[in-house]
Simulated assay, not measured.
Amino acid sequence: MKKIITLFAVVVGLFAFSSCTTTDDNFQEDFDTYPYAFEIKNVDLGRVADNEYNLRSTFQFEINDNLRDDETVLIYRLTSTINSNTPVWQLIPRTIYFNNGDLVDYFFDFSKVDFFITARANFNLLNRREYIDDQTFRIVLIPSDLAATMDTNNYLEVMNTLKLSENQVKKVKL
């Protein structure tokens, strides 16, 4: 009977340990702590000046207690879709250049409490509203040491490394 109880305790202990962590080389993190990826869909950036618009928001979950100093925040902008199941995500900061010399810069900053996403151009963005209206962003939180080992420009590589699927991306309404 003692052997059965010991075996049961070991199995339960192993199951509990393996169910809440994931390991990738030297990376071990509790994925239940906070969402690693979330999406802000169809938002209009607010006017700061004719050539500058931004989105300012607070994180809508307990990131301020869980985001450590060694975390990296990656923000991707939906630039197009190949088909309904294949979005094209582009890492920002990013500069988009036009043949006529115009350009649009996307960049961001963040703290443990909030973040800003900014679009700035060398022309009046009201003339090219597709760069400020109806924007969709994916925000991915990742340990800095893990970010250093991958191509963060490649959204799919980041999601595969984190072992996150599309249905695990938290949808956030602002």
Score class of each variant (00 low, 15 high):
73 V>F: 09
72 T>A: 07
54 N>Q: 15
50 D>S: 15
23 T>G: 03
103 L>W: 15
166 E>N: 14
34 Y>R: 14
4 I>K: 14
37 A>G: 15
124 N>M: 02
109 D>M: 11
84 S>W: 02
44 D>P: 05
15 F>C: 00
162 L>D: 03
53 Y>I: 04
57 S>D: 06
79 T>Q: 12
22 T>W: 12
140 V>Y: 08
59 F>K: 01
98 F>K: 13
142 I>H: 04
10 V>K: 01
90 Q>N: 13
129 R>C: 06
54 N>L: 10
9 A>D: 00
69 D>E: 14
60 Q>T: 02
78 L>R: 11
115 F>H: 15
111 S>M: 10
27 F>I: 14
131 Y>M: 07
63 I>K: 05
134 D>E: 12
72 T>Q: 04
68 R>C: 01
162 L>P: 00
71 E>Y: 15
90 Q>P: 04
107 F>S: 15
170 K>A: 05
140 V>P: 07
32 D>P: 00
25 D>T: 10
11 V>K: 06
98 F>L: 12
131 Y>P: 01
23 T>C: 05
113 V>D: 07
26 N>F: 11
35 P>W: 05
29 E>H: 07
111 S>D: 09
49 A>F: 00
85 N>S: 12
45 L>N: 05
121 A>F: 06
100 N>A: 13
115 F>I: 15
38 F>S: 06
133 D>R: 11
173 K>M: 07
35 P>V: 07
129 R>V: 12
10 V>Y: 02
100 N>L: 12
42 N>Q: 14
47 R>G: 02
77 R>A: 06
154 N>K: 08
57 S>V: 03
41 K>P: 02
123 F>V: 00
36 Y>V: 03
128 R>N: 04
20 C>H: 04
89 W>S: 08
167 N>D: 13
20 C>Y: 01
116 F>Q: 13
84 S>I: 02
87 P>H: 12
71 E>P: 01
10 V>C: 01
85 N>R: 10
50 D>W: 04
67 L>G: 07
149 T>N: 13
162 L>G: 00
129 R>K: 13
85 N>Y: 09
121 A>P: 02
171 K>S: 12
83 N>T: 02
82 I>S: 07
161 T>V: 00
55 L>M: 09
152 T>Q: 08
76 Y>I: 09
22 T>Q: 11
48 V>K: 14
150 M>S: 00
52 E>F: 06
115 F>K: 08
131 Y>H: 14
91 L>E: 04
111 S>G: 15
37 A>K: 08
148 A>Q: 04
99 N>M: 14
64 N>K: 06
40 I>A: 02
71 E>C: 03
93 P>D: 10
45 L>F: 15
7 L>V: 00
75 I>S: 04
78 L>P: 01
23 T>W: 11
155 Y>I: 07
64 N>M: 04
53 Y>T: 05
126 L>G: 04
104 V>G: 01
115 F>N: 04
173 K>V: 14
105 D>P: 03
97 Y>P: 00
47 R>Q: 09
62 E>R: 15
94 R>I: 12
27 F>A: 10
103 L>Q: 11
32 D>G: 03
36 Y>L: 10
92 I>R: 13
167 N>C: 00
131 Y>I: 01
114 D>N: 10
169 V>Y: 01
2 K>A: 03
96 I>V: 13
24 D>T: 12
17 F>H: 12
109 D>R: 10
129 R>S: 11
78 L>C: 05
172 V>H: 03
6 T>A: 13
44 D>Q: 13
51 N>E: 00
